[in-house]
Amino acid sequence: MVIPVHDVNPSRRTPWVTYALIAANFVVFLLTPGVSGSVAGGSSLAQLCHLEAFTQHYALVPRELIHGRMPSLVPTGAVGVGMHGPGCVLGPPAYDKSPVLSVLTAMFLHGSWLHLLGNMLFLLIFGNNIEARMGHVRYLLFYVVCGYAAAYGFALTNSSSTTPLIGASGAVAGVLGAYLVLYPRARVWILVPFLLFLPLRLPAWIVLGFWFVLQAFYSTGEAVAEAGTVAYLAHVVGFVAGMLLAWPLKPGTPPPPEPGGILFGRQTRRAW
């Protein structure tokens, strides 16, 4: 696993949409039921039941999206006592849910601080240049379309799944795919866990290409035990969608500036 920290590719304009998306994701996360408990170090059963009901209402559920069938019983947010002790109460849905709209709302939901911060870090580093190249409005539409493509791609191959799907990963993956197409030679500073953290500056095509191959490998479900809990296939579909949508913009895209000879954080000399 590598951690990007900066790209050597200055943006020509202020990425207001990227900033707004990041701010919206943080606001929604902080307002999500149960987050206050997790920040303090633990959540009560009542908070967990409320969070479960909230997630079921606003998250994407593949079976709902593909077949349009709402479950007969959903978490109500209340706590009850059953045969096995206290637990979350199930009941008929007290709301009308639009599966198509849930794709959009799910893009702003995250399950943990690590989930949120990882997505927002990638969006902050790579989103500004894509927004500058596309313009604010087209970039926002691009972001949403990539998120929808990722969601439908995952749902179509998991149409019987009732597990809620949340996160901005699919849309952010689209941004990464567009960056690979438009700025493959831009240098990206990354931290590689080796003893502590080893700083390296590599071309974007290596950093993002490695990320994509890793996601594709994980999507098979054979690489890691938790592959079933992360929608890696959504990342793959979002990335490919971003590449395809950005491809027409490749001609005429100005190349990133060529940085000086810096390697491992030190200035080096060039041979003539």
Rank of each mutant, 00 (worst) to 15 (best):
residue 197 F to V: 14
residue 197 F to D: 02
residue 198 L to P: 00
residue 198 L to H: 12
residue 200 L to M: 15
residue 201 R to F: 00
residue 201 R to A: 15
residue 203 P to Y: 07
residue 204 A to S: 15
residue 204 A to I: 06
residue 205 W to R: 13
residue 206 I to N: 00
residue 206 I to P: 00
residue 207 V to H: 07
residue 207 V to P: 04
residue 207 V to Y: 08
residue 208 L to A: 03
residue 209 G to F: 07
residue 210 F to E: 04
residue 210 F to I: 07
residue 210 F to R: 03
residue 210 F to W: 12
residue 212 F to M: 15
residue 212 F to T: 05
residue 213 V to L: 15
residue 214 L to Y: 12
residue 214 L to W: 10
residue 215 Q to W: 05
residue 215 Q to L: 09
residue 216 A to W: 10
residue 217 F to W: 12
residue 217 F to H: 04
residue 218 Y to V: 11
residue 219 S to I: 05
residue 220 T to L: 14
residue 220 T to H: 03
residue 220 T to E: 04
residue 220 T to C: 02
residue 220 T to S: 14
residue 221 G to C: 09
residue 222 E to Q: 13
residue 223 A to E: 06
residue 224 V to W: 13
residue 224 V to H: 15
residue 225 A to L: 10
residue 225 A to D: 09
residue 225 A to V: 11
residue 225 A to G: 04
residue 225 A to H: 10
residue 226 E to H: 11
residue 226 E to V: 11
residue 228 G to V: 04
residue 228 G to W: 10
residue 230 V to L: 07
residue 231 A to Y: 08
residue 233 L to M: 11
residue 234 A to K: 08
residue 235 H to I: 01
residue 235 H to Y: 13
residue 237 V to P: 02
residue 237 V to Y: 02
residue 238 G to T: 06
residue 239 F to R: 05
residue 240 V to E: 01
residue 240 V to H: 01
residue 241 A to T: 10
residue 242 G to E: 08
residue 242 G to N: 05
residue 243 M to S: 15
residue 243 M to C: 14
residue 244 L to I: 14
residue 244 L to W: 09
residue 244 L to S: 03
residue 245 L to D: 00
residue 245 L to A: 12
residue 245 L to M: 15
residue 246 A to V: 03
residue 247 W to Y: 14
residue 248 P to C: 06
residue 249 L to I: 00
residue 249 L to K: 05
residue 250 K to I: 00
residue 250 K to S: 12
residue 251 P to R: 14
residue 251 P to G: 10
residue 251 P to Y: 08
residue 252 G to C: 03
residue 254 P to M: 05
residue 254 P to E: 10
residue 254 P to L: 07
residue 254 P to Y: 03
residue 255 P to R: 15
residue 259 P to Q: 02
residue 260 G to A: 12
